[in-house]
Design a protein around this nucleic acid. Structure first.
Ligand SMILES: [Mg+2]
Length: 396
DNA sequence: TAGCTCGTAAACATGA
DNA sequence: CTCATGTTTACGAGCT
């Protein structure tokens, strides 16, 4: 079934210039994103595809290289979704049989990467099991994206329809982190970290050699990453994990505190169901009952908050799409979405995978990580009661 | 200016 | 020997 949620025509939001600076910035309240993620996770459905204006943004079903060699990416006029022929790959194929462990992740964000095809059919094409985010063809600001050869970090998570193959706005630390966190075992050999990165950020497929060196360099140098048991079967490599002690800081790095404001005043507390909190050390968490001023909460945030608060039929899906977008382009996009945006989501009703409990939670965390938000919210849904999360020093 | 984070390059060391 | 995996140093660019 497909739900259709139509955004209120609210216009003129725009709200300042969100992220424009360096790496991923987080213009949306983390709390909000967190809730979104949790919400999505609680509904634990498998997303298949995300489209914006008919343009495939994500294929969670792994499409791998849908042929891209002569990629003429340097022609991306910033946003203007060209009228390129939609070449969505069969997508029915099965991934490389290399049996990467993370393949088991089918349930969560498959491929956080966008395929470069400028399809632009004006209507909501809803294929089975997919998420479609339809949006008005917004007027692409003349962001003149210089085709400059030197790869620049793809500043500020741009609005949805952006070309792939640009250097992601995430640091290697983040990329590695995401890769590891997205893995079922929360551990990966360096090779698979490479694979994850390439898959999710095609830019690296043809990126000048050296990035792998950077990855390894980062792994060993960064205290956040630890080497553990050696991976059997695979050469001599070891499995890399994220040090739970540094997890928070790592996450923080990918998401500047920015707002500290409350999620959203509207619709009273958002009491998401699932309360599976993770006992994250959560030390010295300055944020708590605090509420710094800074009321420049984006309009979109309010809307999302409402959706969270008023769970309606398509809420979950809507949020799922929003989260995916946030993950991919940075929370800023949520505020950049054009006024009258439709989010049509159709999901796969056959989610009876019935994984053991952890599954959904993993999904939630993966979402959070990818969105650059710290999981294990210290503040439970409780209306006013303080977190009181009896932290478990020694994680699980 | 000083300090810190990042990205790169590169020299080495090991083990397959 | 070659390749993959790790460790380390060194440097320059940016940002605070
Ligand atoms: Mg390390």
């Amino acid at each position: 079934m497909a739900f259709l949620v139509q955004m209120a025509p609210m216009r003129g939001e725009r709200g300042g210039s969100p992220a424009r600076g360096a790496r991923a910035s987080l213009p949306l309240p983390r709390r909000l994103i967190r809730q979104i993620a949790r919400h999505v996770a609680s509904s634990g459905r498998s997303l298949r595809r995300l489209e914006v204006s008919g343009r495939v943004i994500d294929n969670f079903d792994d499409i791998e290289d849908a042929s891209d060699d002569s990629d003429m990416e340097q022609s991306q006029p910033a946003v203007a979704c060209g009228g390129n022929a939609g070449n969505l790959p069969p997508a029915d194929h099965d991934d490389e049989l290399t049996s990467l462990s993370w393949l088991q992740d089918r349930n969560l964000l498959r491929g956080i990467n966008l395929t470069k095809n400028g399809v632009d059919m004006e209507d909501t094409k809803m294929i089975d099991n997919q998420i479609i985010v339809k949006r008005e063809t917004k007027t692409p600001p003349p962001v003149a994206r210089v085709p400059s050869p030197p790869r620049t970090p793809c500043k500020a998570p741009p609005s949805p329809p952006v070309n792939t193959h640009t250097k992601p706005p995430y640091s290697f630390s983040c990329l590695i982190f995401m890769a590891i966190e997205a893995a079922p075992a929360r551990a990966l050999p360096v090779k698979e970290i490479y694979a994850w990165i390439v898959r999710h950020f095609p830019y690296f497929r043809h990126a000048p050699q050296g990035w792998k060196n950077s990855v390894r360099h980062n792994l060993s140098l960064n205290k956040c990453f630890h080497k553990v048991a050696a991976a059997p079967g695979l050469g001599k490599g070891s499995l890399w994990t994220v040090d739970p002690q540094h997890r928070a800081s790592l996450l923080q790095k990918s998401s500047p505190q920015a707002f500290g404001r409350q999620p959203i005043p509207a619709a009273g507390e958002v009491e998401m169901s699932s309360g599976g909190e993770a006992a994250e050390p959560e030390r010295a968490s300055p944020e708590r009952g605090e509420r710094p001023e800074r009321g420049e909460r984006p309009a979109r945030a309010a809307l999302l908050a409402r959706r969270l608060a008023e769970p309606e039929p398509g809420a979950d899906e809507y949020l799922a799409a929003a989260t995916v977008l946030a993950m991919k382009y940075g929370p800023a996009v949520l505020d950049q979405l054009p006024p009258a945006a439709h989010l049509v989501i159709s999901r796969c009703a056959r989610d009876e995978h019935s994984y053991s409990g952890g599954e959904e939670r993993r999904t939630a965390e993966a979402l959070l990580n990818l969105a650059g938000v710290q999981p294990a919210p210290p503040a439970p849904p409780a209306p006013h009661a303080p977190p009181a999360t009896h932290a478990q020093p020694a994680h699980s």
